[in-house]
């Protein structure tokens, strides 16, 4: 392919249009679950005002990648840099404190709690430091959902009573509400209809306009080509290639996903170069 002369690591570090260092950068991250190598020396970088798509087959390691960045999993090896400085989140709270907001694939909602409680899960507003300030959380949740138009009947409804699309709206609204510079979304349109998917698309566009660094995991290549700037293909735990949407086609990406087109990461066929 067109960039095969450059090693993946160099490509990952190359500043894009903005000419600055990446807001979020993952270097050589590996993560295994028992015998399963879910991530194998994966690199990733996103700049401010850039939307990076992560695509790949089921089991390619996309969700593991998201969870490593958001502090749910600690990587076995590798490092994570935010605004150029190294962090090692051992817990989701630490990643969030570093400005990372996440919409997880499983949405991370508690079905038995109402929408307001879910909106402030792990980040409650307190009264006197110990009591839950329910009144303010309910008011804020209502405000957020009004802005976001989540189509949720009431913030006092248990999430277990909501439809899949409504749940997804709650999870996305929760992540956007935090107004963090880095936003990760793992399959944010999976349970959504056409109209709702379009709304998520416009949310992503406005995040870009606000100068956020956005990572979107998606199977919907149409959506990816419409809303993302760069596509990173994951295959069998590796990051096999990264392409600018302007330099590639849908067929090219599908080839990379299935392995019909060889990726740039050929480290398994040769000794690891010092990266």
């Amino acid at each position: 392919m067109n960039t095969s002369a450059v090693t993946p690591v160099e490509r990952g570090l190359t500043p894009r249009s903005t000419g600055t260092y990446p807001v979020l950068e993952l270097r050589d991250a590996s993560k295994s679950f028992g015998h399963v190598v879910a991530l194998n020396q994966v690199n990733l970088s996103v700049h401010a005002g850039e939307v990076l798509a992560v695509v790949g087959d089921n089991g390619a390691g996309k969700s593991t990648l998201v969870k490593v960045i958001s502090g749910v999993h600690r990587p076995d090896m590798g490092e994570l840099l935010v605004h150029g400085s190294r962090i090692s989140p051992g817990h989701p709270t630490e990643a969030r404190a570093q400005g990372i907001s996440t919409v997880f694939q499983d949405l991370a909602l508690v079905e038995t709690l109402d929408v307001a409680a879910n909106m402030f899960l792990g980040r409650q507003i307190s009264r006197w430091g110990v009591f839950a300030n329910r009144r303010r959380m309910i008011a804020e949740a209502e405000k957020t959902l009004r802005t976001y138009q989540g189509n949720v009947p009431s913030v006092r409804v248990a999430v277990g009573e909501l439809s899949g699309g409504q749940r997804q709206s709650v999870a996305i609204a929760r992540a956007i509400r935090e107004n963090n510079p880095i936003v990760l979304m793992d399959e944010p349109t999976a349970a959504l209809g056409v109209q709702e998917t379009a709304r998520v698309g416009s949310i992503i566009n406005s995040l870009r306009a606000e100068g956020k660094a956005v990572v979107i995991v998606s199977h919907d290549l149409g959506f990816v080509f419409e809303h993302c700037d760069r596509i990173q293909v994951m295959r069998l735990g590796r990051s096999s290639a990264t392409r600018d949407v302007r330099d590639t086609t849908r067929e090219g990406v599908i080839g990379l996903i299935t392995g019909a087109v060889p990726g740039d990461d050929t480290r398994d066929h040769r000794p690891r170069s010092g990266s």
Partner: peptide, 16 residues
């Protein structure tokens, strides 16, 4: 209550 409802979600959202 959140942990009892969905322990995985509670942890993902940063509850200790």
């Amino acid at each position: 209550r959140a942990i009892g409802g969905n322990r995985v979600a509670a942890r993902s959202m940063g509850i200790r």
